[in-house]
Design a binder for these strands. Structure first.
Lengths: 137, 137
DNA sequence: TTACGGCCCGTACCATACTACGGAGTCAAG
DNA sequence: CTTGACTCCGTAGTATGGTACGGGCCGTAA
């Protein structure tokens, strides 16, 4: 058997058993087949999915957005054009996040350098990370 | 006068008035001086701070983490070494987020290309974004 | 000088994303 | 064949991050 009980999945993915049931209710993971006793029998693939959800949450995606990300695939229920359009929106969204993070990083690197030089810094140097190019186009 | 009432600040920073009072209670923004009437008088600088908070939230930082980011500055109450160490931890954290976002983006770009070729995709192609280099070092 | 919006405060409520609880059935090691 | 950990389900409670409400004072413009 290469199926797992909910407890094993939870340990491997480092989430709570209740979280798994919660994600199932919310439609983030598929309802797995059951034994006769009612016990859930998960395939191994659910682990990767759970780890993806964990990471995406840390990046500020809501469960709703994560559901959208996970639904991005080409299948008979949708059109290529639709998938492409949704994927491109997500790509733009992700690129914006990357740019903001890069500016934050830059401000922090500058701060550590100011540190080396033992110079004083502004009241709040990380705010530099959005001083320029912050107005709407 | 270059000070603003809470309502004006809220409009400019695109947050609610109640959110401003909430952030004040939580220590994310300083308590501003008051008029005799009790009205808060904000300096312009609070706008940049609020916009930073908004963006950082979208990147998955909690209000607690944002408070830490905003406190990263060299001043008499702390040492250079301490600021440096805290900044470096945040830099590592930010770099990890950037790497994960780049992998997600790559998976989505690949998906749009599969779309062009009208080929079918895996059950859930975005999961690729963490298939490799996903074990702890 | 009064109308009407803005602001004061405390408190209560809300959505999201879990997390815990309780009572009953299940499984497998000893 | 029992014991103890695991699972089932529904429901309730929690933490975070706001958001709304209500009664009362403030400010300014007609």
């Amino acid at each position: 058997m290469d199926t797992m009980t909910i407890g094993k999945v939870a340990r491997l993915a480092e989430v709570g058993v209740e979280t798994l049931r919660f994600y199932e209710r919310e439609g983030l993971i598929e309802e797995p087949p059951r034994r006769e006793s009612g016990y859930r029998e998960y395939p191994e693939s659910v682990i990767a999915r759970l780890r993806f959800i964990k990471r995406a949450k840390e990046l500020g995606f809501t469960l709703g957005e994560i559901k959208e990300l996970l639904s991005l695939k080409i299948d008979p229920s949708t059109t290529c054009a639709d998938v492409r359009q949704r994927a491109e929106l997500k790509i733009d969204n992700i690129e914006a996040k990357i740019r903001t993070l890069q500016r934050m990083k830059k401000a922090l690197v500058k701060l550590t350098k100011a540190c080396d030089q033992r110079g004083p810094t502004d009241e709040c140097p990380i705010l530099e990370s959005l001083e320029r190019e912050d107005r709407k186009p």
